[in-house]
């Protein structure tokens, strides 16, 4: 028994390093260094835990520009067995519909038993891609997964899901797409030999839209949504009074709750 576990990772601007453009006063994302989306590190850890349980391979996939291969090298350094970069100018302007189609086709081509993604990305934070992958392939899904438990004898994966006001344990047939709940899978330290291999010698396989036979089904043209405009949000005006004595603070609160 061994499973193929495919992990979706994305290169995003480092949220901690995003500065303000002095001319426009807007966030300047272009100048921020590109890093692996934080929640994807936890998706990798979830994948390694399944591999520990049933054996098999963990393969990282990323859709992005050629330089996104750095996050794949990092994924291999963290313990992935292999990695694929899905890169093509044709993907430009894709919203979550073609993005999840592309990753769904890649997961199919990799013969995935399990696909794991982070709960959402820090740059667009829709959380729509994992269910989108499952929907495109007609696969089962386990989102907001806080713990995973492989059940190879049943060809199922079980997960503890965080649901409104509680938890549930759900078992899903393979192949299944998992979205790992953020904060639940602490990434393990990378073994040194993997780190050296991933950072120095490893080069990911590269696929384009043609390889996945989706050249006419991606990009701006097939994206149902478009951005109609952006406006800066004016901060809410607050008094900003800071007092020294608890009693003064209590007086202010008293006025509100009285």
């Amino acid at each position: 028994m061994s499973w193929t576990i495919v992990v979706g990772v994305k290169q995003v601007p480092d949220a901690d390093e995003v500065g303000i453009d002095p001319d426009t006063g807007r966030l300047d994302r272009a100048s921020a260094p590109a890093v692996m989306n934080g929640p994807d590190r936890e998706a990798l850890e979830a994948a390694f835990r399944i591999r520990d349980q049933v054996g098999g391979e963990v393969i990282a996939m990323s859709m992005g520009p050629p330089n996104a291969k750095t996050v794949l090298k990092e994924a291999v350094a963290m313990g992935c067995d292999d990695a694929v970069l899905i890169s093509d100018r044709a993907f430009g302007g894709s919203d979550t519909w073609p993005t999840s189609l592309t990753l769904a086709r890649a997961a199919e081509a990799l013969e995935a038993d399990v696909v794991i993604c982070g709960e959402e990305t820090t740059d667009s934070s829709t959380g729509q891609v994992p269910p989108g992958i499952a929907a495109h392939n007609g696969w089962a899904q386990l989102t907001y997964a806080e713990a995973v438990d492989a059940r190879p004898e049943e060809d199922r994966l079980a997960a503890r899901r965080d649901v409104e006001g509680g938890h549930e344990l759900v078992a899903a047939d393979l192949p299944v797409v998992v979205a790992a709940a953020y904060g639940e899978f602490d990434p393990r330290p990378a073994p040194l030999h993997r780190k050296i291999y991933g950072e120095n010698d490893f080069e990911p396989t590269v696929w384009d839209a043609e390889d996945l036979e989706i050249k006419d089904e991606v990009g701006l043209e097939v994206s149902p949504t478009s951005v109609g405009g952006m406006e800066t949000v004016d901060p809410v005006e607050r008094k900003g009074e800071v007092v020294d004595e608890i009693d003064d603070l209590a007086d202010s609160i008293e006025e509100v709750v009285a």
């Binding site: 919203d95 979550t96 519909w97 999840s100 934070s125 829709t126 959380g127 729509q128 269910p131 989108g132 499952a134 929907a135 495109h136 899904q141 989102t143 907001y144 899901r161 965080d162 649901v163 409104e164 097939v222 149902p224 949504t225």
Partner: peptide
Amino acid sequence: GTHTGRDFAGRVAVPAHAGLTAD
């Protein structure tokens, strides 16, 4: 936009090729 809503919305929007905006 509960966990439930965010969980299944894509299973409607993807096959219908609908536009889905999050949050």
